[in-house]
């Protein structure tokens, strides 16, 4: 190996680094001892790299990131287990009905996850984004009443700071579901409010169901007979805004 070859290789050398087992580096390092000019160049580069490596390692990592990642896995695992249970329950019900001679034929979603997917699909069916624009919750409620939709919701505390843009009525599965459009200043969110929904594996009030639904991140929960489905935020935003001290605060 000549000095030019050694220099090219040593461009990617890190002392004690991930390439230490590569025997070609040992040869290149020997060349720095034979060629003093190469040796000086190498020492200067090592000093330079060391300071940049330290710089990269000063990028501060959020202190709660590890816990958030681990908490997210638990939520996902819970959700999957619940989905499996729901599927098993539906399958068992089907068998019982079939044996009894009453095979049930229906297109209605059997479980909450399907309903949620339909809801979100319907909300983005290519039609107008909003049926009614207003930042005033009372005006929105009045409009909902005028259109024979439920208007008995209250905006959760976690969304009190959000700015209302308007609403839309989403028709799915024979229901007319109000969808509120909000923004927190940077992100666009949709909050669906469904009254009296009774499906397999509904989200709990104290254990929000975090799930990715198509391109949307969603969080779903229940409060006072209303099922809330919030979409459009990222995992971390959900966690930061609505979970404090590991507890869900949206419906508390």
């Amino acid at each position: 190996m000549n000095s030019e070859e050694a220099k090219r290789l040593l461009e990617v050398f890190r002392a004690g680094g991930a390439d230490m087992e590569d025997p070609r580096f040992a040869e290149a390092l020997l060349q720095t001892e034979r060629d003093r000019e190469l040796g000086r160049w190498f020492e200067d580069q090592r000093r330079f790299d060391q300071q940049f490596a330290e710089g990269v390692k000063t990028i501060s990592v959020p202190t709660d990131l590890r816990d958030s990642i681990l908490a997210q896995r638990k939520v996902v695992r819970f959700s999957r287990w619940a989905q499996w249970r729901a599927r098993a329950a539906v399958a068992a019900s089907f068998v019982v009905l079939a044996v009894g001679g009453g095979v049930l034929a229906t297109n209605k979603p059997a479980q909450f996850t399907e309903f949620r997917a339909e809801l979100i699909d319907q909300a983005w069916d290519g039609g107008a984004h909003l049926d009614f624009e207003s930042s005033d919750p009372k005006k929105i409620q009045r409009w909902l009443v005028q259109n024979d939709a439920s208007a008995s919701f209250s905006l959760p505390d976690g969304l009190k700071d959000a700015h209302l843009i308007g609403c839309k009525l989403v028709e799915t599965d024979g229901l007319r579901v109000p969808m509120l459009c909000l923004t927190d200043g940077t992100r666009h969110m949709h909050l669906f409010l469904v009254d009296g929904l009774q499906l397999a594996h509904m989200p709990a009030s104290d254990k929000p169901d975090f799930e990715k639904c198509g391109v949307w991140r969603t969080a779903s929960w229940q409060q006072g007979g209303t099922t809330y489905v919030l979409t459009g935020m990222k995992y971390q935003t959900f966690v930061n805004k609505f979970r404090k001290g590991g507890r869900w605060t949206m419906s508390g």
Binding site: V56, K57, I59, V61, P62, L65, R66, S68, I69, Q72, R73, V76, K234, Y235, Q236, T237
Partner: peptide, 27 residues
Amino acid sequence: YEPLYRFAFSLVQRESDARDLTQDTFA
């Protein structure tokens, strides 16, 4: 999670986006 977050941050230059990238990767 730490080196992964630092890599993510170097790509997106925003804490919230770096967090999401890191969390999504582990998900």
